[in-house]
Simulated scan of single mutants.
Amino acid sequence: MPNVPNYKVEIMDPEKKDKLIGEKYQENISYGRKANLSGTCIKLLTNVEKFKEMWEDNFKSMNEDVRPHGRIFALKTGDEETRVLYEPISKTCFLLDCDYYGYVKSLALAVSGDFLEEYHSIHSRHSVHRAAVDYRGIGTAIIAPSGVGKTTQAYGLLLEKHVRLIADDWFYTTIVGNGVDVQASEKNCYIRADIASDIKEYGELLEGVSLDGFGRTVTNVRRVLGKTTMKENTTLRNVIHLKRDPDDEKILRKMKTDEAMEYILNNDFCNPHRLVTDKRKRKLRKEFFKKLYERTDIYMVNTTASIEENLEQIKDIALER
Rank of each mutant, 00 (worst) to 15 (best):
R71D: 08
I72G: 03
I72E: 05
A74N: 01
A74W: 07
A74F: 06
L75T: 08
L75I: 14
L75E: 02
E80R: 13
E80H: 12
E80I: 12
E81A: 12
T82I: 10
V84Q: 10
V84P: 01
L85R: 05
P88E: 05
I89P: 02
S90K: 13
S90A: 12
S90V: 05
S90N: 12
K91I: 03
T92R: 01
T92S: 09
C93E: 00
C93R: 06
F94L: 06
F94C: 09
L96D: 01
D97M: 06
C98N: 15
D99E: 15
D99R: 10
Y100K: 02
Y100A: 10
Y100H: 14
Y101D: 04
G102Y: 02
G102S: 06
Y103H: 15
Y103C: 08
Y103D: 13
V104H: 00
K105G: 11
L107T: 05
L109D: 08
L109T: 08
A110G: 14
V111Y: 05
V111N: 07
S112N: 12
S112I: 00
D114M: 12
D114F: 13
D114Y: 13
F115I: 09
F115Y: 15
L116R: 12
L116A: 10
E117T: 02
E117N: 11
E118Y: 03
Y119C: 08
Y119M: 09
H120V: 15
S121A: 10
S121Q: 07
I122L: 14
I122Q: 14
I122R: 14
S124L: 04
R125P: 04
R125W: 01
H126T: 07
H126C: 06
H126A: 12
S127E: 11
V128Y: 01
V128F: 03
V128E: 09
R130I: 11
A131S: 15
A132L: 09
A132R: 03
V133S: 08
V133D: 08
V133M: 04
V133T: 12
D134Q: 09
D134H: 05
Y135A: 07
Y135Q: 08
I138R: 12
G139M: 02
T140W: 06
T140M: 11
T140F: 05
A141G: 04
I142P: 02
I143S: 09
A144T: 03
P145A: 02
P145Y: 00
P145G: 08
S146Y: 03
G147E: 06
G147F: 04
G147Q: 04
G149C: 06
G149Q: 06
K150E: 00
T151L: 06
T151H: 03
Q153H: 12
A154G: 09
A154W: 05
A154K: 08
Y155H: 13
G156Y: 04
G156V: 05
L157T: 04
L157P: 02
L158V: 05
L158G: 03
L158K: 00
L159T: 07
L159Q: 14
L159C: 10
L159N: 11
L159A: 11
E160I: 02
E160S: 14
K161M: 07
K161T: 13
K161C: 05
R164M: 02
L165T: 08
A167G: 08
D168M: 02
